[in-house]
Structure formats: C-alpha cells, structure tokens
Design a binder for these strands. Sequence first.
DNA 1: GTATGTGCAAACTTTTTGCACTTCG
DNA 2: CGAAGTGCAAAAAGTTTGCACATAC
Lengths: 141, 141
Amino acid sequence: MKVLIEDIRNKFSQKGLKITPQRVVILEAIYKLNNHPTADNIIENIRESHPNIATGTVYKVLETLVENGLIRKVKTDKDIMRYDGIIEIHHHLYCSKCDLIEDYIDEDLDNLLKNHFKDKNIKGFKIEDIVLQIRGAFDKC
Amino acid sequence: MKVLIEDIRNKFSQKGLKITPQRVVILEAIYKLNNHPTADNIIENIRESHPNIATGTVYKVLETLVENGLIRKVKTDKDIMRYDGIIEIHHHLYCSKCDLIEDYIDEDLDNLLKNHFKDKNIKGFKIEDIVLQIRGAFDKC
DNA sequence: GTATGTGCAAACTTTTTGCACTTCG
DNA sequence: CGAAGTGCAAAAAGTTTGCACATAC
C-alpha cells in the first residue's frame, strides 16, 4: 500500500483535526502495517522514527481517529484491541489457528445481504452496517 | 429460558468434566442472564447464592467451558470479554447507542450464505463458520 | 486415593487519567 | 495567543498465575 503523507494531512484537515507529527506517524503506521495492528504493534513500528512518543498519546490518538471515522476498531475475542485503516465496509477472515485477520471484500455478497434485509427487516432495530466474521483456517497456517 | 440443573450436569459428564458446584452455578448464570454477560456480570449474579467464589476460579471455569464448546466468546470492540451460552450458529445485533447485544437467528440468511460460499470459495482459506455482526440501533435505545 | 478443581493474593497486561507543558494554526 | 494536543507517571480495569488446600469420582 502506497501511503502519501499529504493524503494523511488532508484527512486530518477535513475533519478539523490539528496535524501533529504523532497523529501523522500513527495513521501512517496503521496503513503500512495493514494487518489490523494492536496498539503495541503500532508503538513498536513508530518507535524507530519517533522514540519519544508516549503510550498514553498513542491510545488518545487512536481514540480520536476512531471517533472521527478515520479508522475502525476490529472486534476479536481476545482482550487486545486491534485497529483497521480501511473504513469502507468489508468483512474479516479470522484464522482459528493463529491471530491472523485478513480483509475480505465481496460486492456480490454485499448485494445479497442488501436484498435480503430489504425484504426482511428486523423489528425494533434499524441496521447501520453488517460485517461478516468468517472464521476458518488459512492453508498457510 | 428454563434452566434445568440436570441438563447442565449431563453436559459436564458428556465432556468428561467433573461436576462442581462452581461450574454448575456459572453455566446456569450464563443461561439465565442470556444477554451475553461479562465475567463481572456472572460473578455479581452468583455471589448471592455463592458468596465465596473466587474471581480466578470464574475465569478458569469460563476458559474450560469455552475449550469444551459449552459456551462461546463474543467478539466486541470493547476490551471486556463477553460470553454466549448459545453454541449453535447465530448472529448478533450490536447496538450502536448502548452495550446491548441481541441474538439474531435467520435460517433463510444462513441458507443464502451457504449457497453463496458453495459457488464462490475463498482461495487459501477453509471456512468453518460465519457470524454476522449487525450494527445498528434499537428503537428502545 | 488420586487426579482434577478451587481459593487466594499477587502479578501482569492493556488501557485510561490528570495535569503541567508544548505546539499548531 | 489560545485552543488543542502531548508526555509522563500513576492508577484503573480486566485477566492470569502459582501454589497449597479441597473435592469429585
């Protein structure tokens, strides 16, 4: 994934967020790592270029990014939070043998779901979005 | 939900697990609470009848139950683990306004998915099960 | 009787918080 | 300059661990 700093700066501006080196480097790391990193993965990754960044800052920045829709939290059944730089709706393949979570994009599937829930609505509940957790095993694992 | 102690005891026996009062009361609590309780919800619930149970024991029992397929962990984007007493495949409605997670059962949907993934398989990945995270808002919230 | 399970308290991990200091715009 | 953001260190919250004791079978 090609990551342009200029794009990242624009995203912050569009949301009215101040552009700070910490925010830029954190969002850049999420895009580069692009395998649903944990806060720790991110810290490790940016320590090279930014050794003085504080853990608290990283968590605060991540929270800000989530609130502003620049990243998403990924649901897992571990007690470590993971983050996703892709904000368009997509699904996740969870490996049952290791911690790998891969993205899965499938427009046919999204259309299928859209049609299904157009006919059949859930009473007392208004759907905002649907994400599939597809659990299984990667051949490589 | 009617919870029969005898059923719970049988489940433990079938898995070769010793029947202890702690295990019985914990599984019973999960069935009774049936709203995807946290470890804390469970402890609170059983303290009335079982005031001396240790936190560590509750976590160990929960882990044993998960390993033996008697309960499931529920994926959330909070850092608190939640548990589900329903082990058959079903989907979840996540409220975007509060912490409510409701079960959603839809056989038509399951058939739709089965057909979709029969035709279209994901290369390098063998699907074990699929759970939908349906995010939205309950009218009551 | 023996393998398995529990209680307890301490430790560990991840995340949050408060406040003085700094920086962006 | 002023509002917003950061660093730091302490603490909170949730979970795990190790070991002596207790219990199920």
